[in-house]
């Protein structure tokens, strides 16, 4: 009951907090429009040769990628790094609730503030690519939404685990930048995994990256994916990240010196 109340309060307060940044929100949403740029490139390529995807399929795919990226964007590592380096973690550690929940529900609240801008961009997209409009099946809606939620949790958990390294190296975000390199290419953000050479695709499917973008996006637009394998991989990577996270958290707290506080 208390946990539910904490969650509800954090979401409502952080929603109010994010609304304070309504002007910045437009730019944050636009900064996540990479997939729409790739769409332009692949659209051209599809018109000049047989890639196995039509222009409309590419448009649909990258719109789904855009949507997934908007709902799974995570920045916890930068906030946490600042908290550790500047000692701002100290007051949060003195409250009887794990500081992670402030970050997590802050992210959840931010999702809600994005929705109007996302809808606006989708409307614009539909005007530009009317042939790409599709109606998701109930199956696609159910599993697409569920895996989208899982993707957000997995991405948050992985990034929060990297953030724990701030206890040791203070600029943990550098690791995140390195990770982003692999994320960009193996998540399906640049190109559908179906277009990758077989060995690379198979390798990618053993990593967490496709499950952060490609997998939920494919389910949303009805591309064939192995649902069971995807769910198992997400849960497995989530469990690994959670174990490492909690271990690093305990070890990190022993190292924490509350600098500047």
């Amino acid at each position: 009951m208390r946990s539910f109340r904490v969650a509800r309060t954090l979401i409502s307060v952080y929603y109010a907090y994010m609304v304070e940044y309504r002007a910045e929100l437009i730019f944050w949403v636009l900064s996540g429009s990479f997939p729409l740029i790739f769409l332009g490139l692949w659209n051209q390529a599809a018109q000049s040769g047989d890639l196995g995807f039509t222009s409309a399929e590419f448009a649909r795919y990258f719109l789904a990628i855009f949507l997934v990226r908007q709902f799974t964007v995570v920045w916890v590592i930068w906030d946490f790094e600042k908290e550790v380096v500047q000692g701002k973690l100290s007051p949060l550690l003195l409250q009887p609730v794990d500081p992670v929940w402030r970050h997590f529900f802050g992210h959840v609240a931010e999702r809600a503030t994005r929705i109007p801008f996302i809808l606006l961009l989708i409307g614009l997209f539909c005007l530009l690519y009317p042939e790409a409009i599709w109606l998701p099946t109930p199956y696609a809606c159910l599993w697409g939404s569920l895996t989208l939620l899982l993707s957000f949790c997995l991405r948050f958990l992985i990034q929060y685990t990297f953030a724990m390294l701030a206890f040791w190296i203070e600029r943990a975000s550098a690791i995140q930048q390195f990770w982003f390199l692999f994320y960009t290419f193996l998540s399906g953000m640049v190109a559908p995994l179906a277009l990758f050479p077989e060995p690379i695709r198979e390798f990618a499917l053993w990593t967490p990256f496709p499950y952060l973008v490609y997998f939920p996006a494919s389910l949303l637009i009805g591309l064939p994916v192995d649902l069971t394998r995807g769910l198992v991989m997400m849960v497995a990577w989530g469990a690994i990240a959670l174990l490492i996270n909690r271990w690093l958290w305990q070890a990190g707290l022993r190292r924490y010196s509350g600098m500047g506080a």
Partner: peptide, 24 residues
């Protein structure tokens, strides 16, 4: 801690107090 803050900078203090009320 003097000059160290736990209140959310851009919101009224009452909002931060609501979080504390839920947490405690």
């Amino acid at each position: 801690m003097g000059q160290k803050q736990q209140l959310l900078w851009d919101l009224p203090a009452l909002d931060s107090l609501r979080i504390n009320a839920a947490v405690y």
